[in-house]
Amino acid sequence: MSQPVLSVRDLIVEIPTRHGLLKPVDGVSYDISPGEILGVVGESGAGKSMTGNAVIGLLDRPARIASGGIYLNGERIDNLSLAQLRRYRGKQIGMVFQDPLTSLNPLLPIGDQLTETIQEHLGVSGGEAHNRAVAALDEVGIPAAKERIGSYPHEFSGGMRQRVVIALALCAEPSLLIADEPTTALDVSVQAQITSLLKRLCRERGMAVMLVTHDMGVIAETADRVAVMYAGKLAELGPVREVITSPRHPYTDGLMGSTPLASKGKRRLHQIPGNMPRLGQLPDGCAFHPRCPYTQDRCKADPGPRLKTCDGRAACWFPLDGAQAAKGVA
């Protein structure tokens, strides 16, 4: 197998607060290969965006990487200075955020924003940068790209703006794209346009994509592998079809059961009892054990299960087999 584009090893992100040290990301490890889409799912506060921000070096103070390593194409990038990081950000790692309006400068035409990025990272002449900007807009499917390059962000609709943001993220031809909830603010039909665009670009360029979302349907259709996060830890990591059809971690199973599904009609939705614990009040042992229907004594003991101490797929001492996991997609 080829070398992964991104390797994250035992990443721990800390936030020191008055009430003690919080760990929004706690011991997360994963790889993304060229041409692969890794979906990262979880509920709010699970640490999915924090993981993405740590990779691109966008953690807000006082959050910091406490330990672990991030490797891009084999080079370690988590300990770089800001000046060194600038060469990676935008050049080798592209980023797409949820809200396209806040990712674009409202006072500059989109063409200026694109050519600025291209000149900064590729060091080409102004005319060449302009041509590349038109080509980039063309590639993401903006009609009449030549005429629209002088338009301001407010002159585009939400879906078109998100295309501009994707063009901006891709114009320096990065090897990794981090897409943080890229379709959450968009309508269903526009969402379908954007996800199929991401899939096509990933395939054509052999780019690695980290797709952060809370929408299981989007993950099922788009991702190759999926990482399920709960309370800052990876709960399950595996090929998307296997994780969704036969989840091993009880949390993944509960998540699948609580998603309304076309095929299952009007039965009652499965409820996971309780709420996700706050970061300052994580229980000992497995963070999910107070809500887990299969809890045993070992789950309450310290330390909690990790992917590598268990079977590599689910961070659970007693992973479900097919017969137990009846609540998911049958």
Partner: peptide, 20 residues
Amino acid sequence: EAAPRMDGFGREVTPPEGEI
């Protein structure tokens, strides 16, 4: 057709044309 499906693994959707 455009709505994402939980069982649509690797489904290639022909995205709808145009916008409202």
